[in-house]
């Protein structure tokens, strides 16, 4: 989080603010509730979900959203985001792979030409709830680092690895691969191609769980500036007060 943390919000408070923020951005054109939950999930685990929104605002504010989906097989999808932010369509994209995994045991989607890829985290959380195994892998060309999220057992949260090297794959410079399966071995095969056996997680699932417990106990720190920016967006939903509107409250 950039700036000094000056305000502590409860999870519910931040969730409500994020819902209104996304609702103000897209009205009901997207599943604003699940978008808010995804961002909240990042924030409570220490991954600066709010910063991700604020840095993506120019893109999020641009209404035209041309993305292209193709199916390479019954269980495999490729989605071209044409350089857009992943936030609005990450959940629906993950649904495709999850649906295939539930139906056929395995599902995969390669999402190319996007940014804000950490938003895929919430999809792994969902696979855990569905007793699926999953992984998300991407290469960040800007930082020259490879990111691997790996839900490799019956845990609620994935382990998060960051490698200081480029790993070639279908994800390219600005894409990611999300795979989920009913069996652990398919996921391991995908992960083992890029992850050294002795790699140490950047964050273990236990650390992520502790981060959640900590914010539940104390609240989520947020800079007044970021809080103000989000509220400014969310406040677009507010309707000016008039005599007529006061009658609409029961006066």
């Amino acid at each position: 989080m950039d700036g000094q943390a000056e305000l502590y919000l409860s999870l519910n408070e931040l969730r409500a603010l994020l819902r209104r923020t996304y609702e103000a951005l897209y009205h009901h054109g997207y599943d604003f509730a699940v978008m808010a939950r995804s961002c909240l999930w990042l924030e409570v685990h220490g991954f600066d979900g709010i910063g991700l929104i604020l840095r993506s605002l120019d893109d999020l504010e641009t209404p035209c959203r041309e993305i292209k989906l193709s199916e390479t097989s019954q269980n495999q999808f490729v989605l071209n985001g044409y350089g857009r932010c992943l936030i609005p369509f990450v959940n629906a994209a993950a649904d495709l792979a999850i649906g295939s995994a539930e139906e056929n045991g395995f599902g995969q989607i390669d999402i190319i030409n996007v940014f804000g890829r950490l938003n895929i985290l919430a999809a792994l959380k969902k696979t855990a709830r569905l007793n699926l195994y999953s992984t998300a892998i991407w290469y960040d060309a800007g930082e020259a680092r490879t990111h691997i999220l790996w839900l490799n057992s019956s845990k609620d949260l994935p382990d998060y690895y960051i490698l200081d090297e480029s790993k070639d794959g279908p994800w390219g410079q600005s894409g990611l691969r999300f795979v989920c399966s009913k069996t652990a071995d398919i996921i391991s095969e995908n992960v083992n191609v890029v992850l050294p056996h002795d790699a140490v997680p950047y964050k273990t699932c236990e650390q992520l769980a502790r981060a959640h417990d900590l914010v539940l106990e104390n609240g989520i720190p947020i800079s007044v500036e970021a809080y103000s920016k989000l509220n400014k967006i969310a406040d677009r939903l507010l309707v000016p007060s008039t005599d007529a509107s006061r009658r609409g409250a029961g006066e």
């Binding site: 009901h28 054109g29 997207y30 509730a33 369509f89 649904d95 495709l96 999850i98 295939s100």
Partner: peptide
């Protein structure tokens, strides 16, 4: 076909 494909094409109906 699956619900996933439907809501991908119509994200306004996902919720």
């Amino acid at each position: 076909t699956t619900t996933a494909r439907f809501v991908f094409a119509h994200p306004q109906h996902r919720y």
